[in-house]
Structures are given as C-alpha cells and as structure tokens.
C-alpha cells in the first residue's frame, strides 16, 4: 500500500505524457523511412534514409538551424540584460510603481499572433508604420524591416513579448534581497557597481537559471510570430527549424521529409535538454 499509492497517483500524468511523446515519435520514425507525400498518394514504400538525406542536404536546413540558435540565443541575452536593468531600476519604491509594473508586464499576456500583426503592420510598415514615421521625423530613410532585417525583426518582436517575463521574475527575486546587508555594504563604502557585482548579481543567480530554462523551452519552438509576419522569408532568411518542418509538411505536403525534420528537432531539443538539466540541476536543486 505504501508504495502502491504514490505510483497510482503519478500514473495518469506519466501515462498520458508518455503516450503524448511516444506515439508521435514512433509514427514520425515510421513516416520518416517511407515515401509519404500527401499529393502523391500512389507512391508508397520503404525508402530508408532518403528523407533524412533530403532534409539535411536541403540548403534551407543549415540556414534554419543557424536561425534557430540565433533566435533563441539573442532573445535570451536581450531579455536577461534588459530585464535585469529594468528590475534594478524599479526596485526602490517610487510614485506610481504599481502602474509601471502593470504597464511593463502587459505584453506577456498578448497572444503571439496579435503581437506579430501589431508589429508587422502598425510598427514596422515602411510607409505608415510608427517606426517609419519616427525615422522620417529625424530625417532618415524609413527601413523596410521585415524585408531587409527579417530575422532581427522577429527577434525584436519575440524579445518584446518575453522581456516582461524576465523583468517580473527578477523584480520578484530582488524583493527578497537582504536590505540590511545592502545598507551595511553602503556604510562600508561600497559603490553601486560593487554592490551590483557582489550582492545583486549573485542574488539573482537562481532566477537567471529559471528565466533561461523557461525561455529556452518556449523559444525553441517559436512559430506564430514567424507564420504571421515574414512567413519564413524572404527566402529562408527568417525560417527556423520549427517553421521549416511546417513548410515541408503543410506547404509541400511531404509528410515523410517533415517527419525526418521533426526527428532532428527532437534531437536538438534533447541536446538543449541535457545542457539545461546540468545547469538547472545545479541551480535549482536545493
């Protein structure tokens, strides 16, 4: 009884998650070694690793891999750096701090599709967009963001959405700073930079780990922001792995190649996973 009950309680969650993982995985493996194009239903049969070869030798593949890494890395760096700065800035009480907090967190609740359309049209449109107007006001030529800087535009959009999350975690973490210790360090003549280096940053250590972990999970599979803004283009300039697989599956109707790509994504996710488990294990295992 003592051993059975805990297992019984865990079973539903573990069971469903296991199915959720293993069924698609097995099916993907199966689809990836057969000819499976929805547009050519008469052509079937085992083709070995041909789909993998096609997916990996496709020039889009390297671009998409690099884009994925660049996207995840840049957004994490941007949100952590600016999140820390904003959290430090708003740490001490000041008039209207609660309203400032509400303004800061709002973008996090906005759905990715709205976020993306808002930036695509009203901010980044090269003629009527707000950014174009600002550029013109200062006498510059407006930039066609989504055409000339597609990947960086997506990075900007995604960062805007995730910055509130990082900020909020850091703000919460700073609230538990030892005020007396800060005061004591000031008495001893420590300047702000020294406090930052020896008190604030070490205190934020665990929340850095949390932010990196959660963001990595969500950023590896960024999809809606690309789907609604650039559509992966121009060319493959803003296509990440997730979007490349989507293109193969639903635009080229090639489920076989898409499945091969999906398996690659699983491998990529697991590499990230091992890396994370090491890092998080060290920081959260208290």
């Amino acid at each position: 009884m003592k051993r059975l009950l805990p297992r019984l309680l865990m079973a539903p969650a573990i069971g469903t998650l296991f199915l959720w993982m293993i069924v698609p995985l097995v099916m993907s493996i199966y689809f990836s070694v057969i000819r499976y194009n929805l547009m050519q239903p008469d052509q079937v049969g085992f083709i070995g690793l041909e789909n993998f070869e096609y997916f990996i030798t496709d020039p889009s593949f390297m671009t998409a891999t690099m884009n994925t890494l660049l996207l995840v890395g840049s957004v994490i760096v941007i949100t952590v750096v600016f999140g820390t700065l904003i959290a430090l800035l708003t740490d001490d009480p000041f008039p209207g701090r609660n309203i400032v907090r509400i303004l800061l967190i709002s973008p996090f609740f906005v759905m990715p599709t709205v976020n993306a359309l808002l930036w695509k049209h009203m901010m980044m449109n090269p003629i009527y967009g707000v950014l174009a107007q600002v550029w013109m006001f200062f006498g510059f030529t407006p930039v066609d963001w989504l055409t000339d800087w597609p990947l960086w535009s997506v990075i900007l959009i995604v960062s805007w959405q995730w910055l509130p999350f990082a900020t909020l975690i850091f703000v919460t973490s700073l609230q538990s700073m030892d005020r007396e210790q800060l005061e004591a360090s000031r008495m001893d003549g420590a300047n702000y930079l020294q406090q930052l280096r020896y008190l604030y940053i070490p205190h934020l250590g665990r929340s850095f780990a949390v932010v990196v972990m959660i963001e990595m999970i969500f950023l590896l599979s960024v999809f809606a922001e690309i789907y609604t803004t650039t559509g992966g283009g121009p060319g493959d300039a803003s296509t990440n792995i997730a979007f490349l697989i989507f293109k193969q599956a639903l635009l080229n109707f090639d489920a076989g190649v898409a499945s091969a790509g999906a398996l690659f994504a699983v491998v990529l996710a697991n590499i990230a996973g091992v890396f994370l488990i090491r890092m998080v294990g060290k920081n959260l295992d208290k």
Partner: peptide
C-alpha cells in the same frame, strides 16, 4: 515540453 510541437504535428 522541449520537443517543438511541430515535431508531433504530422502524427
């Protein structure tokens, strides 16, 4: 959770 949703899309 880290497995991109798109990996499971076709199945």
């Amino acid at each position: 959770k880290m497995m991109p949703a798109v990996g499971a899309l076709v199945p």
